[in-house]
Computed example of a mutant assay.
Amino acid sequence: MIKVGLILGIAGACRTDELVNLTVDDIEDVGSSLIVKIRNTKTKIPRIFVVTDVGKMLELFRKYLSLRPPPSSISAFFCTTKQENVVRSQLAKIPWEKFPSVVASYLKLPDVACYTGHCLRRSSATLLADAGVDITTIKRHAGWKSTTVAEGYVENSIERPKLLIRF
């Protein structure tokens, strides 16, 4: 579940509440990719993003989906887990805010407590900037209206100086 949350969270620059509110109907598996719809956003502007089959991402997604209870019993995509079994209840927001610190701890990163659910949006923006994506596209991807806010999310990117240049 954590791996799937990281994939979706970073791929879609998701807020923790957007992950909590994801339903099975919000994610469409089209074979070679996933189409994910974020309907309930802070800005009230729905977003759509695609997760392509890089590495084992779709395999992890499909494995997690196979462990979930049937959609008829619970529509929330992420459900609480107890060991390897999925329990029939929606995952609360609190664990999502803490799961990046769990990942940071596993990776033996310093200052584990600094890793919060917001790291997903920062990581997404920084990865896009590092790939040379322009600030307008980054804003649209994450649902930011302000260029200043979007630029603030790009952490120590190798492309950051290019983003800050204005014509």
Rank of each mutant, 00 (worst) to 15 (best):
K98V: 10
L164V: 12
S32A: 14
H141R: 13
I2R: 05
E151I: 14
L128D: 02
N21G: 03
R121F: 07
I48W: 07
F77M: 03
I165W: 13
L163P: 00
R122V: 09
I158M: 14
K108A: 08
W144F: 14
S105H: 12
L19P: 00
G9C: 08
G9R: 01
N156A: 12
V30R: 15
L163R: 02
E18D: 04
E159W: 06
K56N: 15
G55I: 05
K42L: 12
E84M: 13
S101M: 03
S146P: 06
P100N: 02
A13V: 01
V50Y: 06
L67D: 00
V86E: 02
T80F: 01
K63M: 01
P110C: 09
T126H: 02
R166A: 15
I2S: 08
P95S: 11
Y106I: 07
E97S: 13
G55H: 09
L8Y: 02
T43F: 10
K139Y: 07
Q90L: 06
S32V: 10
Y106G: 07
E84R: 15
R15Y: 06
T23V: 07
S157M: 07
P95M: 09
K44T: 12
G31K: 03
K37H: 15
V51Q: 00
L22H: 03
L67H: 06
P71E: 04
L109Y: 08
E28K: 10
N40M: 09
T23P: 04
S73D: 14
P46L: 11
V20T: 07
P110V: 08
P71S: 11
E59V: 01
I7F: 00
I38R: 01
Y64T: 00
I45D: 05
S157E: 13
E151T: 10
A129R: 00
R88S: 15
D130L: 03
G55R: 11
T136R: 14
L8F: 02
E18S: 01
V51M: 02
D130I: 01
I165D: 10
C114D: 14
D17M: 09
L60E: 09
I94W: 14
A150W: 01
D17K: 09
K37V: 05
S75Y: 03
L34I: 02
A129I: 08
A125N: 02
F61T: 00
G152M: 05
V149Y: 11
